[in-house]
């Protein structure tokens, strides 16, 4: 990266990456399923590292090319760590709590592969984002 030289360059870069992160445009077939694992201190201490490794492993095992696994900070649901968010392109994200490595693998199988939302593991989001 050679450094961004102007605001226009910055805007272009934003637009380029916007879709893949926000994943809101259903029309774009390149959009992938995004699995976000909360990897703040609380999460890691509760086993988020094991969870994310298990998920990555499972995704690889299943050759799920349309899935990206990312780490993120903390959503604030400390009582339910580790937390994992699954977002299909164009759909509202689903937030799961208490996802240990085992559940992580199951999540890949059930939600990602088979599209079954795991209702029992869902935690209700109690926030609006700006």
């Amino acid at each position: 990266m050679a450094g961004i030289k102007s605001l226009d360059e910055l805007k272009a870069l934003r637009d380029k990456h916007r879709e893949s992160v926000l994943g809101r445009d259903t029309g774009d077939s390149e959009n992938k399923i995004r699995i976000t694992v909360g990897m703040a201190t609380c999460g890691i201490a509760s086993g988020a590292r094991e969870t994310i490794n298990a998920i990555i492993d499972e995704v690889a095992k299943e050759h799920l090319m349309n899935v990206v696994v990312v780490q993120s900070g903390c959503l604030g649901y400390c009582y339910a760590e580790p937390t994992v968010e699954v977002r299909f392109p164009g759909k509202e994200a689903v937030l799961y709590g208490n996802i240990d490595a085992k559940r992580g693998r199951e999540l890949v199988q059930r939600h990602i592969k088979n599209g079954e939302i795991q209702k029992d593991w869902i935690i209700e989001k109690t926030f609006n984002n700006i």
């Binding site: 870069l13 934003r14 990456h17 992160v21 993120s72 900070g73 903390c74 968010e85």
Partner: peptide, 20 residues
């Protein structure tokens, strides 16, 4: 952005209007 973007990936921050 907490819990939403990857904090170690500046592209993600830029994607959500970072540095705008």
């Amino acid at each position: 952005n907490c819990g939403f973007i990857d904090p170690e990936n500046i592209y993600e921050y830029i994607a959500v209007d970072g540095y705008q």
